[in-house]
Simulated scan of single mutants.
Amino acid sequence: MHTPRLYRLIDGCCEPHRPLDALYASIEEAMADAVEWLEQGWCDAGLDSLLAQIGVEVCASNGDWRTCRLPMPLLTPLLCPLPAALS
């Protein structure tokens, strides 16, 4: 029987991301939560810059967590709008 994979977000120190400490059913769900959190401006409120670097880990079948996306800053359309001439 196939066990569904679980994902979690990590910070710049490759530790579970404290404000976004949850389990997700997919990378897309995890990243959507991270983007929403960033768009709310929490990182602009003076939080540690390591929290602005977001990565993703997946839980392996033996229970170990493995990095599948290294922590890095996320750029979103709302945080980094394109100039009008390019859109």
Rank of each mutant, 00 (worst) to 15 (best):
G41C: 07
R66I: 15
D44K: 08
R18P: 15
T3L: 15
C59V: 11
E28I: 13
D11Y: 02
C80G: 02
S49M: 06
L9D: 00
S49D: 12
G55S: 02
L75W: 09
G63V: 05
G63N: 06
L82W: 06
G12I: 09
L47W: 11
N62Q: 14
C80R: 05
L70Q: 13
V56Y: 02
S87W: 02
V58I: 09
A45L: 11
E15Y: 05
H17Q: 04
A85N: 06
C13P: 01
L23T: 00
A22V: 00
G63F: 13
W42N: 11
E29S: 12
S61E: 15
L38M: 14
V56E: 01
E39H: 02
I10C: 08
V58H: 10
L82Q: 06
L6S: 15
G12C: 07
L6D: 07
L74G: 00
P71K: 05
S61Q: 14
W37F: 12
M1G: 15
I10P: 04
C80M: 09
A25F: 03
R18A: 10
L79N: 09
E36H: 04
H2G: 07
S26M: 01
A84D: 09
R18V: 09
G63H: 02
C80N: 11
R5G: 10
P83Q: 08
R5D: 09
Y24P: 02
G41I: 13
P73F: 12
Q53M: 14
L74W: 09
R66W: 08
L20M: 10
E15A: 07
P4D: 12
M72D: 09
E29G: 06
C14H: 01
A22L: 07
S26R: 04
V56T: 06
G46F: 05
A30F: 03
P16Q: 09
M72P: 04
L9G: 01
T3I: 15
L38R: 03
E36L: 07
M72E: 15
L47H: 14
L70H: 07
P4R: 11
A52D: 11
L6N: 04
C59M: 15
A25G: 11
D64A: 13
Q53P: 00
S26W: 03
C59H: 02
D11M: 05
L79W: 03
R69V: 08
D33C: 12
E15P: 03
D21Q: 12
A34W: 06
T76Q: 03
C43P: 03
L70S: 11
R69Q: 10
E29D: 10
T3S: 13
L9H: 03
C80T: 15
N62L: 11
E28S: 03
G55C: 07
I54W: 04
S61D: 14
R5H: 11
D44E: 11
L78Q: 12
A84C: 02
D44N: 06
D33P: 02
C43H: 07
A52K: 11
D21G: 00
T67W: 00
M31E: 08
G63I: 09
E29I: 10
D11P: 04
M31R: 14
Q40V: 08
Y7N: 06
G12S: 01
A30S: 00
R69F: 04
S61Y: 13
R5N: 14
L70T: 06
P19K: 07
W42G: 00
